[in-house]
């Protein structure tokens, strides 16, 4: 077995798993962050235990770096959360789901049906759109229009008039 330190490792693993559950299940952005910190605790404990088992100090050194990175992460994360909060007046992470496929509903949770709408109050910021790639060429004017695949005037290529300045 792992000597005297097996139970330390087990506690570290359990902290890691608990943090993972929290990270996935919580919807409050701050608690998601805290769950990540809990996972970091588990990792730190495991590192320290291994260092102790091998009788060297590398585990402790690494833990110091973990502390440093956690501090950075907390500073930046909180700044970002504040910025997001200022836009939606809510810490709910599900308000920020603009990357979804556009035809999927904004939330799939049945439980939220009775709650206020999840869409943010501010209008969606303008996203860049790809330009249409070409269109159906018109080879001559008397060509029957129904043979063309589309009659949508936006899709039919017509050389645009020069801008009127």
């Amino acid at each position: 077995m792992t000597g005297d330190y097996g139970s330390f490792l087990a506690v570290g693993a359990a902290m890691f798993a608990l943090g993972g559950v929290g990270f996935v299940t919580r919807r409050n952005m701050i608690l998601i962050f805290l769950s990540a910190e809990l996972m970091l605790h588990g990792v730190s404990l495991t590192l320290l235990t291994f260092g102790r088992m091998h009788g060297n100090l590398e585990g402790q050194s690494f833990t110091i770096f973990i502390l440093t990175v956690a501090a950075c992460e907390a500073a930046l994360g909180l700044a970002l959360i504040l910025g997001l909060y200022q836009r939606t007046k809510s810490l709910d992470v599900e308000l920020w789901s603009h990357l979804r496929e556009s035809d999927l509903p904004p939330s799939v949770l049945e439980l939220d049906k009775d709650q206020p709408p999840l869409e943010p109050e501010s209008p969606e910021p303008p996203m860049p759109r790809l330009t249409k790639a070409g269109g159906v060429p018109i080879i001559d004017d008397d060509f029957p229009a129904e043979l063309a695949r589309t009659t949508d005037p936006r899709l039919i290529y017509t050389p645009s008039a020069p801008d009127e300045e």
């Binding site: 693993a13 359990a14 798993a17 608990l18 996935v24 299940t25 409050n28 949770l109």
Partner: peptide, 22 residues
């Protein structure tokens, strides 16, 4: 308290996955 703190997302899946890893 806000409503989104009362609701967990995909509790079963996450617990199963995490505990499998544990």
């Amino acid at each position: 308290l806000s409503f989104y703190d009362q609701r967990a997302r995909t509790p079963v899946m996450s617990v199963v996955a995490s505990w499998l890893m544990l």
